[in-house]
Protein backbone atom coordinates (compact mmCIF):
# COMPACT_ATOMS: atom_id res chain seq x y z
CA UNK A 1 0.00 0.00 0.00
CA UNK A 2 1.04 3.60 -0.62
CA UNK A 3 2.82 5.41 2.19
CA UNK A 4 1.33 8.65 3.45
CA UNK A 5 3.39 11.65 2.46
CA UNK A 6 2.43 13.86 5.37
CA UNK A 7 0.73 13.02 8.65
CA UNK A 8 -0.46 14.46 11.89
CA UNK A 9 -0.26 11.69 14.46
CA UNK A 10 -2.29 11.76 17.64
CA UNK A 11 -2.22 15.53 17.62
CA UNK A 12 -3.75 17.67 20.37
CA UNK A 13 -3.99 21.44 20.48
CA UNK A 14 -5.03 23.64 23.36
CA UNK A 15 -5.49 27.38 23.12
CA UNK A 16 -4.29 28.46 26.53
CA UNK A 17 -4.70 27.03 30.01
CA UNK A 18 -8.17 26.52 31.41
CA UNK A 19 -9.49 25.72 27.92
CA UNK A 20 -10.37 22.17 27.00
CA UNK A 21 -8.37 20.77 24.08
CA UNK A 22 -9.58 22.27 20.77
CA UNK A 23 -8.56 19.01 19.13
CA UNK A 24 -7.62 15.80 20.93
CA UNK A 25 -5.63 12.87 19.69
CA UNK A 26 -6.36 13.53 16.02
CA UNK A 27 -4.60 11.56 13.31
CA UNK A 28 -4.67 12.70 9.68
CA UNK A 29 -2.79 10.87 6.91
CA UNK A 30 -2.40 12.44 3.49
CA UNK A 31 -1.46 10.35 0.48
CA UNK A 32 -0.07 11.60 -2.86
CA UNK A 33 -2.79 12.14 -5.44
CA UNK A 34 -5.53 11.88 -2.84
CA UNK A 35 -7.90 14.45 -1.40
CA UNK A 36 -9.01 13.93 2.18
CA UNK A 37 -12.17 15.84 3.08
CA UNK A 38 -12.57 17.02 6.64
CA UNK A 39 -16.12 17.79 7.79
CA UNK A 40 -17.91 18.59 11.01
CA UNK A 41 -19.87 21.44 12.56
CA UNK A 42 -18.32 24.81 13.27
CA UNK A 43 -16.07 24.77 16.29
CA UNK A 44 -15.32 21.04 16.04
CA UNK A 45 -11.65 21.70 15.33
CA UNK A 46 -11.22 21.56 11.54
CA UNK A 47 -9.27 24.81 11.23
CA UNK A 48 -7.23 23.97 14.30
CA UNK A 49 -6.24 20.68 12.70
CA UNK A 50 -5.20 22.56 9.56
CA UNK A 51 -3.24 25.12 11.56
CA UNK A 52 -1.47 22.35 13.47
CA UNK A 53 -0.44 20.72 10.19
CA UNK A 54 0.83 24.05 8.90
CA UNK A 55 2.85 24.62 12.06
CA UNK A 56 0.75 27.71 12.87
CA UNK A 57 -0.28 26.47 16.32
CA UNK A 58 1.87 24.31 18.61
CA UNK A 59 0.92 20.71 19.35
CA UNK A 60 0.49 19.92 23.03
CA UNK A 61 0.78 16.25 22.13
CA UNK A 62 1.45 14.28 18.97
CA UNK A 63 3.74 14.91 16.02
CA UNK A 64 3.99 15.62 12.32
CA UNK A 65 5.75 13.32 9.86
CA UNK A 66 6.90 14.05 6.33
CA UNK A 67 7.84 11.10 4.09
CA UNK A 68 7.67 8.82 7.11
CA UNK A 69 10.03 10.73 9.38
CA UNK A 70 9.10 13.10 12.21
CA UNK A 71 9.41 16.73 11.28
CA UNK A 72 9.59 19.85 13.40
CA UNK A 73 6.72 22.27 12.65
CA UNK A 74 9.26 24.99 11.80
CA UNK A 75 11.41 22.80 9.59
CA UNK A 76 12.22 24.45 6.24
CA UNK A 77 11.40 21.18 4.44
CA UNK A 78 7.86 21.50 5.72
CA UNK A 79 7.60 25.12 4.57
CA UNK A 80 8.52 24.08 1.03
CA UNK A 81 6.45 20.91 0.89
CA UNK A 82 3.19 22.08 2.47
CA UNK A 83 1.20 25.07 1.22
CA UNK A 84 -2.25 26.37 2.08
CA UNK A 85 -5.29 28.22 0.78
CA UNK A 86 -8.06 29.71 2.90
CA UNK A 87 -11.67 30.81 2.72
CA UNK A 88 -11.00 34.48 2.20
CA UNK A 89 -8.13 34.82 -0.27
CA UNK A 90 -8.33 38.61 -0.47
CA UNK A 91 -7.33 38.82 3.18
CA UNK A 92 -4.15 36.84 2.56
CA UNK A 93 -2.97 39.11 -0.28
CA UNK A 94 -1.29 42.46 0.14
CA UNK A 95 -4.10 44.87 -0.84
CA UNK A 96 -1.66 47.33 -2.45
CA UNK A 97 0.13 44.87 -4.71
CA UNK A 98 -0.97 43.25 -7.94
CA UNK A 99 -1.95 39.57 -7.93
CA UNK A 100 1.07 38.96 -10.16
CA UNK A 101 3.50 40.42 -7.63
CA UNK A 102 1.96 38.40 -4.82
CA UNK A 103 2.08 35.16 -6.79
CA UNK A 104 5.75 35.75 -7.68
CA UNK A 105 6.63 36.53 -4.06
CA UNK A 106 7.31 32.94 -2.86
CA UNK A 107 9.90 32.58 -5.65
CA UNK A 108 11.67 35.71 -4.39
CA UNK A 109 11.59 34.50 -0.80
CA UNK A 110 13.20 31.24 -1.90
CA UNK A 111 15.75 33.10 -4.01
CA UNK A 112 14.71 31.61 -7.31
CA UNK A 113 15.48 33.24 -10.68
CA UNK A 114 15.73 36.86 -11.74
CA UNK A 115 12.86 39.29 -11.27
CA UNK A 116 12.00 38.83 -14.93
CA UNK A 117 12.04 35.03 -14.71
CA UNK A 118 9.91 35.14 -11.59
CA UNK A 119 7.31 37.25 -13.39
CA UNK A 120 7.30 34.82 -16.29
CA UNK A 121 6.83 31.86 -13.96
CA UNK A 122 4.06 33.65 -12.04
CA UNK A 123 2.24 34.52 -15.26
CA UNK A 124 2.53 30.91 -16.38
CA UNK A 125 1.19 29.65 -13.08
CA UNK A 126 -1.66 32.17 -13.13
CA UNK A 127 -2.53 31.21 -16.68
CA UNK A 128 -2.67 27.56 -15.66
CA UNK A 129 -5.31 28.32 -13.02
CA UNK A 130 -7.27 30.50 -15.43
CA UNK A 131 -6.16 34.03 -14.51
CA UNK A 132 -5.29 36.15 -17.55
CA UNK A 133 -2.32 38.51 -17.62
CA UNK A 134 -4.74 41.41 -17.67
CA UNK A 135 -6.45 40.15 -14.47
CA UNK A 136 -3.08 39.45 -12.90
CA UNK A 137 -2.17 43.12 -13.08
CA UNK A 138 -5.07 44.00 -10.77
CA UNK A 139 -5.17 44.26 -7.02
CA UNK A 140 -7.06 41.72 -4.90
CA UNK A 141 -10.01 44.06 -4.27
CA UNK A 142 -10.39 44.72 -8.00
CA UNK A 143 -11.18 41.11 -8.90
CA UNK A 144 -13.98 38.71 -7.99
CA UNK A 145 -13.73 36.19 -5.16
CA UNK A 146 -13.33 33.35 -7.64
CA UNK A 147 -10.46 35.07 -9.47
CA UNK A 148 -8.80 35.84 -6.17
CA UNK A 149 -9.04 32.21 -5.04
CA UNK A 150 -7.49 31.11 -8.34
CA UNK A 151 -4.59 33.47 -7.72
CA UNK A 152 -4.24 32.09 -4.19
CA UNK A 153 -4.00 28.60 -5.67
CA UNK A 154 -1.32 29.79 -8.10
CA UNK A 155 0.65 31.30 -5.25
CA UNK A 156 0.32 28.07 -3.25
CA UNK A 157 1.43 25.82 -6.11
CA UNK A 158 4.19 27.93 -7.65
CA UNK A 159 6.88 26.26 -5.53
CA UNK A 160 5.55 22.82 -6.53
CA UNK A 161 4.57 21.67 -3.06
CA UNK A 162 3.61 18.08 -2.35
CA UNK A 163 0.77 18.91 0.00
CA UNK A 164 -2.00 21.50 -0.17
CA UNK A 165 -4.04 22.31 2.92
CA UNK A 166 -7.36 23.93 1.94
CA UNK A 167 -9.47 25.44 4.72
CA UNK A 168 -12.98 26.16 3.40
CA UNK A 169 -11.60 27.35 0.04
CA UNK A 170 -14.98 27.47 -1.70
CA UNK A 171 -17.26 28.42 1.18
CA UNK A 172 -17.49 32.09 0.26
CA UNK A 173 -18.15 31.44 -3.42
CA UNK A 174 -21.40 31.07 -5.33
CA UNK A 175 -22.08 27.56 -6.59
CA UNK A 176 -21.34 28.35 -10.25
CA UNK A 177 -17.90 29.68 -9.30
CA UNK A 178 -17.39 27.07 -6.60
CA UNK A 179 -17.69 24.36 -9.25
CA UNK A 180 -14.92 26.07 -11.27
CA UNK A 181 -12.56 25.96 -8.29
CA UNK A 182 -13.43 22.34 -7.46
CA UNK A 183 -12.59 21.38 -11.03
CA UNK A 184 -9.27 23.17 -10.72
CA UNK A 185 -8.38 21.41 -7.46
CA UNK A 186 -9.32 18.03 -8.92
CA UNK A 187 -6.97 18.75 -11.85
CA UNK A 188 -4.12 19.64 -9.50
CA UNK A 189 -4.57 16.38 -7.67
CA UNK A 190 -4.49 14.35 -10.87
CA UNK A 191 -1.84 16.27 -12.80
CA UNK A 192 0.58 17.08 -10.00
CA UNK A 193 -0.21 14.18 -7.70
CA UNK A 194 -0.78 16.65 -4.87
CA UNK A 195 -1.95 15.36 -1.53
CA UNK A 196 -4.72 17.57 -0.16
CA UNK A 197 -6.56 18.19 3.04
CA UNK A 198 -9.85 19.78 2.03
CA UNK A 199 -11.91 21.31 4.81
CA UNK A 200 -15.54 22.15 4.19
CA UNK A 201 -18.78 22.35 6.06
CA UNK A 202 -20.59 21.43 2.82
CA UNK A 203 -21.03 17.67 2.65
CA UNK A 204 -22.10 17.80 -0.98
CA UNK A 205 -18.84 19.47 -1.98
CA UNK A 206 -16.82 16.88 -0.08
CA UNK A 207 -18.83 13.96 -1.46
CA UNK A 208 -18.27 15.13 -5.03
CA UNK A 209 -14.56 16.06 -4.80
CA UNK A 210 -12.81 13.98 -2.17
CA UNK A 211 -11.39 10.48 -2.22
CA UNK A 212 -11.72 9.96 1.50
CA UNK A 213 -13.70 11.80 4.16
CA UNK A 214 -12.92 12.33 7.82
CA UNK A 215 -15.66 13.43 10.23
CA UNK A 216 -14.81 15.36 13.37
CA UNK A 217 -17.00 16.01 16.37
CA UNK A 218 -16.09 18.16 19.36
CA UNK A 219 -12.36 17.97 18.73
CA UNK A 220 -12.14 14.27 17.96
CA UNK A 221 -12.05 12.22 14.81
CA UNK A 222 -15.16 10.06 14.85
CA UNK A 223 -15.17 8.42 11.43
CA UNK A 224 -12.97 8.07 8.36
CA UNK A 225 -13.45 6.22 5.12
CA UNK A 226 -14.00 6.39 1.37
CA UNK A 227 -15.93 9.56 0.52
CA UNK A 228 -18.71 7.57 -1.16
CA UNK A 229 -19.00 5.33 1.92
CA UNK A 230 -19.20 8.24 4.36
CA UNK A 231 -21.85 9.91 2.19
CA UNK A 232 -23.87 6.78 1.46
CA UNK A 233 -23.21 4.47 4.36
CA UNK A 234 -22.08 6.43 7.42
CA UNK A 235 -21.72 4.37 10.59
CA UNK A 236 -21.04 6.86 13.38
CA UNK A 237 -24.37 8.20 14.72
CA UNK A 238 -23.10 11.77 14.39
CA UNK A 239 -22.11 11.21 10.77
CA UNK A 240 -25.55 9.78 10.09
CA UNK A 241 -27.26 12.81 11.66
CA UNK A 242 -25.00 15.11 9.64
CA UNK A 243 -25.73 13.35 6.35
CA UNK A 244 -29.47 13.25 7.10
CA UNK A 245 -29.49 17.02 7.57
CA UNK A 246 -28.14 17.88 4.11
CA UNK A 247 -30.89 19.40 2.00
CA UNK A 248 -31.02 17.37 -1.17
CA UNK A 249 -32.02 18.51 -4.64
CA UNK A 250 -33.52 15.12 -5.23
CA UNK A 251 -37.00 15.53 -3.82
CA UNK A 252 -37.70 11.82 -4.14
CA UNK A 253 -35.01 11.03 -1.55
CA UNK A 254 -36.27 9.32 1.58
CA UNK A 255 -37.64 11.99 3.89
CA UNK A 256 -37.35 10.20 7.19
CA UNK A 257 -34.10 10.85 9.02
CA UNK A 258 -32.33 7.63 9.97
CA UNK A 259 -31.40 9.03 13.36
CA UNK A 260 -33.14 11.49 15.65
CA UNK A 261 -30.70 13.26 17.89
CA UNK A 262 -31.90 14.00 21.38
CA UNK A 263 -33.11 17.55 21.76
CA UNK A 264 -32.48 20.02 24.53
CA UNK A 265 -28.76 19.22 24.80
CA UNK A 266 -27.61 21.45 21.92
CA UNK A 267 -25.66 23.69 24.21
CA UNK A 268 -23.70 20.91 25.92
CA UNK A 269 -19.95 21.13 25.22
CA UNK A 270 -19.11 17.53 24.30
CA UNK A 271 -15.46 18.13 25.08
CA UNK A 272 -16.30 18.36 28.77
CA UNK A 273 -18.11 15.02 28.91
CA UNK A 274 -16.42 11.87 30.13
CA UNK A 275 -16.57 9.05 27.60
CA UNK A 276 -18.10 9.69 24.18
CA UNK A 277 -18.45 13.36 23.34
CA UNK A 278 -21.62 12.77 21.35
CA UNK A 279 -23.37 10.94 24.18
CA UNK A 280 -25.63 13.83 25.23
CA UNK A 281 -27.22 13.94 21.78
CA UNK A 282 -26.88 10.33 20.69
CA UNK A 283 -30.05 8.22 20.59
CA UNK A 284 -27.97 5.02 20.87
CA UNK A 285 -26.05 6.05 23.99
CA UNK A 286 -25.69 3.43 26.75
CA UNK A 287 -23.92 3.60 30.13
CA UNK A 288 -20.87 2.14 28.39
CA UNK A 289 -20.70 5.31 26.24
CA UNK A 290 -20.42 7.68 29.16
CA UNK A 291 -18.00 5.36 30.98
CA UNK A 292 -15.34 4.99 28.30
CA UNK A 293 -14.40 7.07 25.26
CA UNK A 294 -14.67 4.97 22.09
CA UNK A 295 -11.49 4.74 19.98
CA UNK A 296 -11.24 4.70 16.19
CA UNK A 297 -11.36 1.11 15.02
CA UNK A 298 -11.66 -0.44 11.58
CA UNK A 299 -15.21 -1.64 10.91
CA UNK A 300 -14.44 -2.51 7.32
CA UNK A 301 -11.23 -2.15 5.31
CA UNK A 302 -10.17 1.52 5.42
CA UNK A 303 -13.39 2.51 7.19
CA UNK A 304 -12.76 3.54 10.79
CA UNK A 305 -15.38 4.48 13.36
CA UNK A 306 -15.07 5.60 16.97
CA UNK A 307 -18.30 4.33 18.51
CA UNK A 308 -19.40 1.60 20.91
CA UNK A 309 -22.60 0.98 18.95
CA UNK A 310 -22.10 1.92 15.30
CA UNK A 311 -25.20 2.64 13.26
CA UNK A 312 -26.40 -0.43 11.44
CA UNK A 313 -28.20 0.43 8.20
CA UNK A 314 -30.02 -2.94 8.14
CA UNK A 315 -30.59 -4.07 11.71
Amino acid sequence: MKQPIFTLENGSVRYGHGHPDAVSDVTVRLYPGEILGLVGESGCGKSTTARAMLGLVPLSAGRLTLHGTPVNPHDRRLRAAVQAIFQNPAASFNPRRSLLDSVAEPLRVHGQGTARQRRERALEELDRVGVTAQMAARRPNEVSGGQCQRAAIARATILRPEVLVCDEPVSALDVSIQAQILELLAELRTEQGLAMLFISHDLGVVASLCDRTAVMYAGRMVEQGAATEIAGNPRHPYSVALQDAVPSLDLSDGLAPRIRTRTGADDVDGRLLPGCRFAALCPSATPECTAAAPVLAELAPRHEVACHHPFDPAP
Binding site: S144, A179, G204, A207, L209, T228
Partner: peptide
Protein backbone atom coordinates in the same frame (compact mmCIF):
# COMPACT_ATOMS: atom_id res chain seq x y z
CA UNK B 1 -23.43 23.26 -10.66
CA UNK B 2 -24.69 22.08 -7.28
CA UNK B 3 -22.63 19.21 -5.88
CA UNK B 4 -24.62 15.99 -5.65
CA UNK B 5 -24.55 14.62 -2.20
CA UNK B 6 -25.74 11.05 -2.29
CA UNK B 7 -25.27 10.35 -5.98
CA UNK B 8 -24.67 6.71 -6.87
CA UNK B 9 -21.52 7.69 -8.79
CA UNK B 10 -19.10 10.34 -7.64
CA UNK B 11 -18.94 13.25 -10.06
CA UNK B 12 -17.83 16.84 -9.88
CA UNK B 13 -20.47 19.53 -10.24
CA UNK B 14 -20.44 21.26 -13.61
CA UNK B 15 -19.14 24.84 -13.52
CA UNK B 16 -20.87 27.72 -15.24
CA UNK B 17 -18.23 29.65 -17.18
CA UNK B 18 -17.63 33.34 -16.54
CA UNK B 19 -19.24 35.46 -13.86
CA UNK B 20 -22.57 37.08 -13.13
Amino acid sequence: AIPRHRAAEQSLPRPIPGQP
